[in-house]
Design a protein around this nucleic acid. Structure first.
Lengths: 189, 189
DNA sequence: GAGCCATTGTACCAATCGGTAAAGAGTTTA
DNA sequence: TAAACTCTTTACCGATTGGTACAATGGCTC
């Protein structure tokens, strides 16, 4: 039987897309087996606690990606403006120019929120903190930085929902570029 | 048997809160019967097409509320600044200072999106259009108005998700007041 | 090449899913 | 008062849910 041996990280990547598209409650095991080609046996071998553990793995994977590709750069880059540019371009490509939703936001807006509250909170808190610190380094006042960071992190989520709702991915890019301009002009404004 | 006779609009109001909190897929009929106290018979008497019709009724109800309490005022008010103030204060109280999610956004971010795409699109399109027109009347250039309207409508959705994610309803008010200031200063800026 | 063990497919489970059927209770109309 | 109508309760349906058990299958090591 044991024909195609799956890699755990490939499975996690597939799971991410499924959860993103159907939400947590909308993702059934039969849908997962269908989309991944893996039977329940394989799935429960990788994730003994079932669906909940699958979602946890996906969220941890996403969290790790953002920490290494976005947050760390915000913190470690010498030039804060460069770091901000990198963040916005990284975000734009991660979310496929508005064609992809944020799973953190998807789950935050769903009934499954309570189950993953810690993961979601950590993600948004981390982003807000690191972005605010970068804005301070870029010359913005402390108070304005935290407020602006909050507006940007939230604004990205809203732009994704808006793009999906209007069936117009371009709306994401338009909002994103406004947020970007605001960050790069923050010290002056 | 027929003891407690329910009013349809009361049922719709209860359904709205249930869908808001659990999402479309997370809301089961047994949960509905539990929270509303109505049996399946009553539910199917009001909504013969079942769960989908219940959600449609709720979305139509929400759409109507926003059209009469927010969009119409944006369009009909003589003083555009006053209309903008009314919109922001209306939104703040509707979403209970960030403690309540937007069902349109909740469903847009879920797997049930396709089923209700028309309703969701109409809601966001209407809001964006009427807000942009008001901003023009308030003296902002046409191009800036549409872009700002998009940013605000999306920003509200994002602020709701952020508030829920951070477990800090106050984040909603903070972002909202920034968006408000941007609208009221738009003509100058 | 024998054995081992991670990995897999399949069959199965109780519980719950959304939805239907039908008959009873309460109210209105004639 | 008797039929007609509205609304509700209860029991039930097949399908699907998330999850378990287990035997079979390979690639691997010794």
């Amino acid at each position: 039987m044991s024909r195609h041996v799956a890699e755990r990280k490939d499975v996690v990547a597939m799971l991410a897309e499924i959860f993103r598209e159907h939400g947590y409650d909308g993702t059934s095991l039969s849908l997962i087996t269908e989309k991944t080609g893996l039977g329940k046996g394989s799935l429960y071998h990788f994730f003994p606690r079932g669906k909940e553990e699958m979602a946890e793995a996906v969220l941890a994977d996403i969290d790790a990606w953002f920490r290494t590709h976005i947050f760390d750069i915000l913190r470690s880059s010498e030039d804060p403006d460069e770091a901000l540019e990198a963040m916005f371009s990284g975000v734009d490509s991660y979310f496929r120019q508005g064609r992809r939703l944020c799973l953190m936001g998807v789950i935050a807006a769903s009934g499954a929120h309570d189950r993953f509250a810690r993961e979601i909170n950590g993600y948004f808190t981390g982003w807000r903190t690191d972005l605010a610190a970068t804005l301070v380094r870029a010359g913005a006042p402390e108070l304005e930085s935290t407020a602006l960071a909050e507006e940007v992190v939230g604004g990205i989520q809203g732009a994704l929902i808006l793009a999906r709702s209007l069936d117009d991915p371009g709306a994401f890019g338009r909002v994103l570029s406004r947020l970007r301009a605001r960050c790069l002009n923050a010290p002056a404004g």
